[in-house]
Design a protein around this nucleic acid. Structure first.
Lengths: 252, 252
DNA sequence: GGGAGTCTGTGAGCCCGCTGACGGAGTCAG
DNA sequence: CTGACTCCGTCAGCGGGCTCACAGACTCCC
């Protein structure tokens, strides 16, 4: 079961070029501006920050960070999507979150033990930039606004995580699936011919990992929803036909 | 089922005396010093902060905050213990955490939506002090160290919450119970005649709410563990006889 | 086009844990 | 002492979801 970790193309580990920047400095500033973490900072400040931040790319399937990693480092996603997941001792996965632009992942002991024990895998080609703990600390001392933004970010993640705990504790697979698809539709939904399409390739195994069930049970649940005309899933794309119906099934 | 919310003595809602302080100013400074959130601040700074912080008391069973609350306010526990829980639409509870000295609860929209939808109930007589969002913001601007401490605190909570999600997703009631008791023992354990006693009164219903199961199933599980000599539970006190055995059962 | 690898659909069987029910034990007020 | 209330122990019954097993469909690469 452990091999699933490596099932996608390997050899795409992140290299971290601490020296020369990969890209034009102004492009970097541009990317920084789009990130919520840095709202409220002036252009000059952004420029100053961008000088110290190495940017790295990571191909689809590559691991950005894992519990084996020794370096304490914090990554900010600039492009692409990153899947955060935990691995149980017996090899099952639980996907915690899908991160896109502006969201944070990493482990830093001084920053609590956040995201220890957590893997981060690029599910699209991704660009991330990274800090060391001391860099971040210096940044926050100079620009307290960044501290506030991180607090807001962590609070959001915490609220979502605790909502998830309640869902996992008391709700059936169908309800959990409905709730998760609603969330994905809100974040990645595209209006399509007949309803809302979720703009992400998701195998049934991946969906199952998100709601903590088995692939087989998930397939049965999808079938049932398809028969009732609520949604369709083909070619690893989910299309929701009856959004309101799905919301009702989610039990919220 | 909803009445369980009120089963303990009512009439003990928090009143917030925004004006005159309840206690001697120096006592307040003393309490602030013990709180992790304020480590790294000088005595003068603590004194300055203490002037603006109202302290309130809350009797056992009282609600410190709930989703119905309109005020956005952040509370810091100074004495006593506070149980954080969510309520499902059909009236079941899931206890998220037990907070003691120095830990934070509250809802603030600018601080993400943390702890929206969350109830906080005093399970011992408690003393809390509270901020408004603007007060906290001012504090962080003046003392960035507080921002760092909050970040660390939130990171810890998030890591614990995500670990919990994995546990809820894949582990049996017995494993969940074992893991939870280990955690409680670490936080509230007292060496006792025959093993480790958990220093907190806990009904079986309350334990069941912590691990997301029913009271009946919990009772069966406790019985089974008792027969195997792992632990004992009487008078709402848990005594763990075989700590290593319990750790093994937790599957970690 | 053909074969390897992956993904999807479905079924049989089994067991954990939920529901519902009820009696006993402890505790507190009168 | 006695009733009222809460908490605890246990059981029968059932069903959701897991495991195991396999066949069909799709994709990608030679």
């Amino acid at each position: 079961m452990l091999r699933r970790l490596f099932e996608r193309d390997a050899g795409s580990e992140v290299e971290i070029p601490t020296g020369a920047p990969l890209t034009d400095a102004d492009l970097k500033v541009g990317l920084l501006r789009e990130i919520d973490l840095f709202t409220g900072l002036s252009l000059d400040e952004l420029r100053e920050i961008s000088r110290t931040l190495p940017m790295t790319t990571c191909q689809i399937g590559g691991l950005i960070t894992s519990p084996d990693e020794e370096d304490e480092r914090l990554y900010i996603v600039k492009r692409g999507r990153v899947r955060l997941y935990r691995l149980t001792p017996d090899g099952k996965q639980l996907t915690l979150d899908i991160l896109d632009k502006g969201r944070i992942v990493g482990r830093m002991s001084w920053l609590g033990q956040e995201l220890n024990e957590v893997y981060a895998e690029a599910i699209e080609d991704a660009v991330v930039c990274s800090f060391t703990p001391s860099e971040l600390r210096r940044l926050i001392d100079r620009f307290p606004g960044i501290g506030l933004n991180i607090i807001r970010y962590l609070s959001d993640r915490l609220a979502a995580s605790e909502r998830e705990r309640e869902v996992m504790a008391f709700r059936s697979v169908e309800q959990r699936l409905a709730a998760r698809l609603m969330e994905l539709a809100e974040r990645f939904g595209q209006p399509s011919g007949d309803g809302v399409a979720i703009d992400a390739r998701l195998t049934q195994q991946e969906l199952a990992d998100m709601i903590g069930t088995s692939r087989e049970t998930l397939a049965m649940t999808i079938s049932s929803l398809r028969e009732r005309g609520v949604l369709e899933m083909q070619n690893q794309r989910v299309v929701i036909h009856d959004v309101e119906g799905l919301r009702g099934l989610s039990g919220a």
